[in-house]
Amino acid sequence: MKRSTVLFSLALTFASAGAANAATLDDIKARGSILCGVSGGLAGFAQPDDKGNWTGIDVDFCRALAAAVFNDPTKVKFLPLTAKDRFTALQSREVDLLSRNTTWTSSRDTQLGFNFAGVVYYDAQGFLVRKAAKVSSALELSNTTVCTQSGTTTQLNLADYFRSNNMKYEAVVFNTADEVIKAYESGRCDVFTTDVSQIYAERLKLSKPDDHMILPELISKEPLAPLVRHGDDQWFDIVKWTLFAMLNAEEYDVSQKTLEQRLKSERPDVKRLLGIEGNYGEQLGLTNDWVVRIVRHVGNYGEIFDRNVGEGSRLKIDRGLNKLWNKGGLQYAPPIR
């Protein structure tokens, strides 16, 4: 397989202007892999180990897509992006989708021209402080120094929260999450603020994680969602329904363990989900066994949650809002039919 790069033809002759915007799925199939923009190193969401193997919930979502498209979860390339240049990367077609703990907001959905494909993780912004500071509520944080990351919604939420509660603070802003947690650890700041899931992950980088605690106040809604560019509905549908398929699989108890047995199930909704009945996969532009591929190679939503951030991981985050709707959470997927 030859690698085509635009740079090369640019160097040879002046490039022909305005290449047509081909369908993303065709590009992916021609390329043989999905380009997935992820976070550069956030335990539980997307993190490479010393050998460059990626793990995390965002990573597994992209693997599920690769499984659905290619029946091979390894046919995905991960591109670590900073908070700052993730949107540019998606807009300039450097990646096919962003699966990078990105908050779904109206302006990103409309003004920046993206489509959010459903919520992978319901999150909220919180505060991490030292236990030694003896603070029990965020309302006691007046006159503190707060470390936060530039180019995120957290910086703006933080300003809103302190302003609406008439508290004074000093914000110290850094470019990358690593710099922020390092500054907090060195004592430059009293408070570290970001999405709670991320606080859990960053806390692992501290030399004594148990000396720090998360305050009970959650100051924002942060629905973290994968996103694609406007203007390619088919690809948008595939990304959206891959997420829904994983949720539905959990709801119908289709997991990596139970898959073979559930394939024999007589329940019509399970049969539809697993492509034994109907041609819902083909309607998406995939094969009918797409959900089987996803579950076999990657697992259902509950499995990837547990494996990466939940009880089965180092983070041990409570499922909370991310439980299925019928178990008291918010995760609710439209039916496949």
């Binding site: 635009v6 740079l7 640019l10 490039a15 022909s16 290449a19 915007n21 081909a22 540019t88 077609r93």
Partner: peptide, 19 residues
Amino acid sequence: ATYMLPLFLPGGANIERLV
């Protein structure tokens, strides 16, 4: 080079970050 150059190039032209 990181944020503006991609805008100057035709759609679909993505040059690697290092380049």
